[in-house]
């Protein structure tokens, strides 16, 4: 296991289903924390509600497991009151994009100095697989039994537009790249947003012919395209396959940030 010092080993195994990508994202985050050399008494993990938000409960550090959608608002309070603490927020697509959408864009706008890791499984997993704002159009879930009729949010692009200093997207399959992106996000002053497309074979895959874990991984791998390749294809006017999402670093800039350690 990665970073054994950072796990509450008395709480493992965690509650995630077999094949869930969230555990992988915890590994990558803690590997990045170790690389940063952060200490336990200067690191706070904050989360909201949902599968993703159970993550801080397995991490041996101060952690705040809050109400649905409000993780970023709580984290803003923590960071402003104690700028010397490193704040990492775990959130999910429902938590961040649906109920917490307002807090998300405002935290990006303020450019709060924190690292936000969104485990985007494109579904409400904890409640049993209901359609979320990131469920792709046409995808099935328990509340979109005839296929989702709504367009989905692109969270990383939203963060870029709202002003985050660092934005990247990877999948829970790309563990090395993801760890590097999280580390870079932690090093960047200001709001760092890392969207992780995670597999949810239990609730997303089940309704979308991706019930087997390798199928779900193959789906993520097959639809991920590096942003540079994507831009090149666009430039050359070549067709981009349907359902493709970009991965890689989408923004790195130096807007003025709030809550940076003085």
């Amino acid at each position: 296991m990665i970073a054994p010092d950072w796990f509450r080993e008395d709480r493992l195994p965690h509650i995630y289903c077999a094949g869930c990508g969230n555990g992988t994202v915890i590994n990558c985050t803690l590997a990045a924390v170790e690389e940063m050399g952060w200490k336990r008494n200067e690191t706070v993990f904050v989360s909201g509600i949902g599968c993703s938000s159970r993550a801080p409960g397995y991490i041996l550090a101060d952690s705040l497991h809050t109400t649905h959608g409000r993780a970023l608002a709580f984290a803003t309070g923590v960071k402003l009151a104690r700028p010397d603490l490193n704040v990492v927020v775990f959130t999910g697509d429902g938590d961040l994009a649906a109920i917490g959408g307002n807090h998300f864009i405002h935290a990006c706008r303020r450019n709060m100095d924190m690292t936000v890791i969104c485990m985007n499984n494109q579904i409400y997993g904890m409640t049993g697989g209901q359609g979320s704002p990131t469920t792709p159009q046409g995808a099935f879930s328990t509340t979109t039994p005839y296929g989702s009729s709504e367009p989905a949010f692109d969270l990383a692009e939203l963060a870029v537009a709202a002003g985050a200093n660092y934005v990247a997207r990877w999948t829970s399959y790309h563990v090395k790249e993801l760890t590097k992106a999280i580390t870079t996000g932690m090093q960047t002053p200001g709001f760092a947003f890392i969207e992780v497309r995670t597999q949810c074979p239990t609730n997303f895959g089940r309704h979308n012919k991706l019930r087997q874990i390798p199928d779900m991984i193959e789906y993520l791998r097959g639809h991920a395209m590096h942003v540079k390749k994507y831009d090149r294809l666009l430039e050359e006017g070549k067709p981009i396959p349907e359902g493709t999402f970009t991965v890689g670093e989408l923004a790195r800039r130096n807007r003025p940030a709030m809550g940076v350690r003085r």
Binding site: F7, L12, G23, N27, C28, S172
Partner: peptide, 13 residues
Amino acid sequence: GLCHMICPDQAIS
């Protein structure tokens, strides 16, 4: 280290 990095259940070491 791919296996122990990707292992979602922290079971490989």
